[in-house]
């Protein structure tokens, strides 16, 4: 759609890096070798190629990190993988230990249109079935799932891609802030969040993250609100660059 097509192996490599760190931190080549289960030399070769294309920053001996472009692509492929897992699990009732490999095969050929339709049919899931990892948000310019659904009902095809970054509130650190771009969730939760002032475009700041998967306290429009971790992980912001 917007980037040149990557080989399946390259996509697998990005996906593996994203699984190790969601935030573009450095990943050692050995960790990657282990995850991908291939020889270190072929991993190095792949990383060099991805570096040339601008997906990763590879510095020999120090490790590799995903670039912004790399994160986007890694996220998209991860999203397809986890959506497919949901589909295989929820619809086709495949056994839990079978879905991972099957999804790995299918993710590379799933088009963006099919991805959107799959998400709609599945009811906008937020977790994958096998290890409850979060499903990354889509890259279309929606501020809510409801909007996506409305487009579908009205048969509107053209959809822009999001220009901003998206990061879930649950992935942010204390003190970081960002502008709300997308909220995933059912109608009721959406409305309650809107009523609390968490509207698209609002700046929110993470004040406190309770340990052990506890809630996140944010500051929005001059007040503090505690959000359960599951709700916070479905609110996506365009993070402000650190001052």
């Amino acid at each position: 759609m917007m980037d040149e097509r990557l080989s399946e192996n390259a996509e697998e490599c990005l996906e593996a890096m994203y699984k190790i760190t969601r935030n573009g931190k450095r990943v050692s080549t050995s960790a990657l070798t282990e995850k991908l289960n291939v020889s270190p030399s072929s991993v190095t070769k792949m990383l060099k190629r991805l570096d040339e294309k601008g997906y990763v920053d590879y510095s020999p001996g120090k490790g590799t990190n995903l670039t912004r472009k790399g994160i986007r692509n890694a996220r998209r492929i991860t999203r397809k993988h986890r959506l497919l897992e949901r589909f295989l699990h929820d619809f086709l009732k495949l056994r839990r230990d079978r879905i991972h490999d099957q999804a790995c095969e299918m993710e590379h050929s799933l088009s963006d249109d099919a991805e959107m339709a799959l998400c709609q049919v599945l009811g906008f899931p937020d977790r994958c079935p096998d290890d409850q990892q979060p499903i990354p948000p889509c890259d279309f310019e929606f501020s809510s799932c409801e909007e996506c659904m409305e487009r579908r009902e009205k048969g509107i095809d053209e959809v822009n891609l999001r220009k901003s970054d998206t990061m879930s509130l649950a992935d942010m650190k204390e003190g970081e802030s960002g502008r709300v771009v997308f909220v995933r969730g059912d109608h009721k939760v959406m409305r309650r969040l809107l009523d609390m002032g968490i509207t698209p475009g609002t700046t929110v700041r993470v004040l406190k993250i309770a340990p052990l998967g506890g809630p996140v306290e944010i500051s929005v429009r001059g007040s503090s609100i505690a959000l359960g971790r599951s709700i916070a992980s479905n609110i996506f912001v365009d993070p402000d660059k650190s001052e």
Partner: peptide, 13 residues
């Protein structure tokens, strides 16, 4: 580029 209900909420806010 947002659904109706959220436009009004945003405006109100």
């Amino acid at each position: 580029g947002e659904p109706g209900f959220s436009i009004i909420s945003s405006e109100r806010y």
